[in-house]
Design a protein around this nucleic acid. Structure first.
Lengths: 241, 241
DNA sequence: CGGGACTTTGATCCTTATCAACTTATGTGG
DNA sequence: CCACATAAGTTGATAAGGATCAAAGTCCCG
């Protein structure tokens, strides 16, 4: 811990866990101080919704801790998860009229919330921040497009394999997982089976069956409902390649 | 026409058909002059490829005329179209190492090409340009996410209906289509049946059958292979809603 | 007018959705 | 601490939507 408590209290950004990874990373002390007056922290409970699809876009936020889902649904109520937001990710729709998707916490989550109007103004005045946001948005667009290939052209087995590999990587990067050697990894899924299905465009039964098959094949182990161990990464990767 | 020919010859941007809609819209005369020295126009034939997935990202471009597809494929060769680029759209991956998808002209197409390194530098020095690019990228991300709902959760009929409505709107906005009253529209598809299938994550046969059904139902007419008339927009919209 | 590409139509198969029952966790109050 | 209630997940049987394979039809261009 490099920030003593008093300073942290005066300027929460200084003590922010994601200070160096979020879009605020490039800002100097002055800028951080201003941004600090605009944002406020909020704690979300699992299942609590932060943004509603179609509503006026009043809020944007940075994820400090926890995992959230971005989602939408068809007119007949089938849900599709459009993205997962992990610590340091940015959520909401800057420079837009309406929020194009719902956002809901999957775990207990800390977010740093800004009124969109405040954020937009600050961003336009601070090109370095806008640049960070641009890089993030471009990266998110790339990720989303890879996801499209999965939804459009992969079968159930490939989708599940893909999902496990991507989730393992993402959690490992955030230090939430436990690396167990090169060819194996254990992690806790931030999603229920239904939510995995909503990510992959499948049904809960199909997801369950595919996981059972992978377990039976010795490729993964499932010590508990949300625990996954990739015991044969090479073989898992082979299902996609 | 507000730019006389000689000036146009000296500075093609001044005469550029998309000057006021592309990301260059907010630049002043000086900036345009600089950008003009960095870009060069290129004419692409239908089927000609501009960018290759996985290659080093050397180029970015603005579409001046025509339609291009962004695409990727699975290891076993099934293609998924990830986006369509129309006039004034930006293509390529600024601020990135590798191009994350292939880009190929669907029609004869004019593009204004920049070396990525030049473009990146220029963009970083001109926040108004970066802002435009950010707005475009955010809009593209929204569009891509709506597309995900279609790929993940809609059946073949809904996908085709959705596609026809979106294509009609997009072409109308670009003035490429012909509005025929409020409840009806005619346009020329910029895509073959196979390419429509690659957009929708379906097979060519399924697309063909769905179009035939819509025609039989009197919802659309298909006067020629690539000609579509939406004769009952309300009913087409009802298939999705 | 003929050849090739593109498209449509038909028959069949296969994957995944759907419906239903059962099992396993999770948690609560007696 | 255990019995019970509830939610989450698994497994099974069946059905349906779309893929695949095959063939015929249509358009376009030289």
């Amino acid at each position: 811990m490099d920030a003593p408590a008093p300073i942290a209290a005066a300027n929460p950004c200084s003590a922010c866990a994601i200070r160096n990874r979020a879009i605020c990373a490039d800002l100097d002390e002055n800028e951080i101080a201003i941004l600090n007056t605009l944002g406020r922290q909020r704690l979300l409970q699992p299942g609590e919704q932060l943004l509603w699809e179609g509503e006026e876009a009043v809020l944007v936020a940075n994820v400090i801790a926890g995992v959230l889902k971005l989602f939408t649904q068809t007119s007949d109520g089938k849900e599709q998860i459009l993205g997962l937001a992990y610590p340091s990710d940015f959520i909401g729709r800057p420079f837009g009229e309406t929020t194009p998707y719902g956002v809901e916490a999957l775990s207990e989550a800390h977010v740093c919330v800004f009124r969109r109007s405040d954020f937009d103004r600050f961003a336009r005045e601070h090109p370095r921040l806008e640049h960070k946001l641009l890089e993030r948005t471009l990266a998110e667009l790339d990720r989303t497009r890879r996801w499209m290939l999965m939804l459009g052209r992969m079968n159930a087995e490939q989708r599940v394999a893909n999902f496990l590999l991507e989730t393992a990587d993402r959690l490992a990067r955030d230090g939430c997982g436990t690396a167990v050697g090169v060819q194996s990894a254990a992690f806790t899924l931030p999603l229920s089976r239904q939510q995995v299905a909503d990510v992959l465009g499948l049904t809960i039964e199909t997801v369950s069956r595919q996981l059972t098959r992978l377990k039976a094949g010795g490729i993964i182990a499932l010590p508990a409902r949300r625990e996954v161990i990739i015991s044969d990464r090479a073989r898992l990767e082979n299902l996609i390649a």
